[in-house]
């Protein structure tokens, strides 16, 4: 993205945010004189798919804000929500879907309004050599193919189901896994001929697998919301971290990891 485009994107994001402009300004590296910078430490609970970009982002944030420490905890979104509701000390929650953020909001544990900061779509994943010569979603319906998908109970499986319905086809998987990692594992080891996972998972797996885009994936675009947890004892730092996620730098890292821009 060129410089002009990037600043335009930053402007757009700032305008779309419900957080204060002050924290946005802080993210564009202008010294913040109106309030003293945030200090202390927070714990960020983030969906497993955010592992790469959030680890990078937290390190950058700590470097830019001396005296702060961002602790990260990655797991499935529903595990994280269950933990927070059970009293786990989280300050920020970044979910891979809206359902789990709603669960947290229903438990009265969201401070303010959750902000969508990224999107993710599904991709067909095959072993690097693509032995079954998969090239389209329709190919996955071939009976001789061993296809592995996520179970409908988890976000990637719900997205798979939406796509099946939109594309009016029925997949007969040999396994419905409970996490993206398990789908990837089966494809990577060559046990399965193809699977459906998120674009970001394919990118994170590197050259151990190959991703194939398919047009029907637009039927299921997953939004990632982020929010400060109501019980946080350092909401100022939590808000500042969220601002950096939604700010231009965070968006750049997320897009490098394969995430799409948030829907307005």
């Amino acid at each position: 993205m060129n410089r002009l485009g990037r600043s335009a994107a930053a402007l757009f994001i700032c305008a779309a945010l419900t957080v204060s402009l002050a924290s946005c300004a802080a993210e564009t590296n202008t010294p913040d004189t109106s309030i003293s910078g945030p200090t202390g430490e927070i714990t960020v609970f983030a969906a497993a798919s955010l592992n790469g970009p959030f680890t990078e982002l937290a390190a950058d944030f700590e470097a830019q804000h001396p005296g702060t420490e961002i602790k990260l905890s990655f797991a499935g979104s529903s595990d994280l929500v269950t933990q927070i509701i059970a009293g786990a000390p989280a300050d920020v929650f970044a979910s891979a879907d809206e359902r789990n953020m709603t669960k947290l909001a229903d438990a009265d544990l969201v401070a303010g309004t959750p902000i969508d900061f990224a999107t993710n779509t599904l991709q067909i994943v095959v072993p690097p050599a693509n032995p079954a010569e998969v090239s389209s979603l329709a190919d996955l319906t071939k009976p001789e193919l061993k296809v592995v998908i996520c179970a409908p109970q988890v976000p990637c499986g719900a997205a798979t189901k939406t796509i099946e319905e939109a594309a009016r086809l029925v997949l007969t998987p040999v396994s419905e896994e409970s996490s993206v990692t398990d789908v990837l594992g089966k494809v990577r080891s060559g046990e399965a001929d193809a699977g459906l996972v998120y674009v970001t998972d394919v990118l994170a797996a590197g050259d151990q697998v190959k991703g194939i885009e398919f047009p029907e994936s637009s039927a299921a675009v997953n939004s990632y919301p982020i929010a400060t947890v109501g019980t946080s004892s350092n909401q100022k730092l939590a808000d500042a971290f969220i601002a950096s996620v939604t700010g231009p730098e965070g968006q750049k890292m997320l897009s490098a990891a394969g995430f799409g821009t948030p829907r307005s």
């Binding site: 529903s78 592995v148 109970q153 998987p173 396994s175 419905e176 896994e177 409970s178 398990d182």
Partner: peptide
């Protein structure tokens, strides 16, 4: 989970079903 996968009636045993149900229906 690692070796057999998870499909109702074929490989999804009770512990796997519990693990999956926990996602949506505690």
């Amino acid at each position: 989970l690692t070796f057999a996968g998870s499909l109702q009636g074929v490989t999804r045993t009770l512990p796997l079903e519990i693990y999956l149900q926990r996602e949506t229906d505690a």
